[in-house]
Amino acid sequence: MSPLDPNVVIAWRASGAIGAAAITAVIAALELILLLPQRIVVLAPGALTGMAAVFAFGLALLWPGLRYRFFGWQVSAEQVVIQKGVIWRSRSLIPRVRIQHVDTRTSPLQRWLGLSTLVIYTAGTHGSDAEIPGLAQDEAEHLREELAKLEELDDRG
């Protein structure tokens, strides 16, 4: 099983931080609008917001490392195997004869870090089961070309 590009951890942390900021903002707004006018104070003014911030940012910092550790992928002559999940584990196996087409996608953040997401389409897979989210750009492109060579696999013509 090959690991992802280590830079993906930075990308995940960055997007996690954005999410954490959003959650913190929502909690802060709720505390400001709902609790403060009623003079309800839990522990100390702003404590709820602080706890939410610590929890959310802590998760954004630590979780990507775990996610990285449990992610593995493998492309062989016959099939693509993608393994992932920290708590809910999953291992997906896609026979290469079933691959319809392959995409690479790059968000601005990923481009800055030199990363790409490889998305594999079959007639069946839906959602993120057939995605390898953090590959070095040239590797992703190489894999895309490699996986697109379908005809050679069909020895029955």
Partner: peptide, 14 residues
């Protein structure tokens, strides 16, 4: 007709 196969494990199953 099989397109892909998945093995899923919940924490309890694991």
């Amino acid at each position: 007709k099989i397109q892909a196969l998945h093995m899923r494990e919940t924490p309890f199953q694991r």
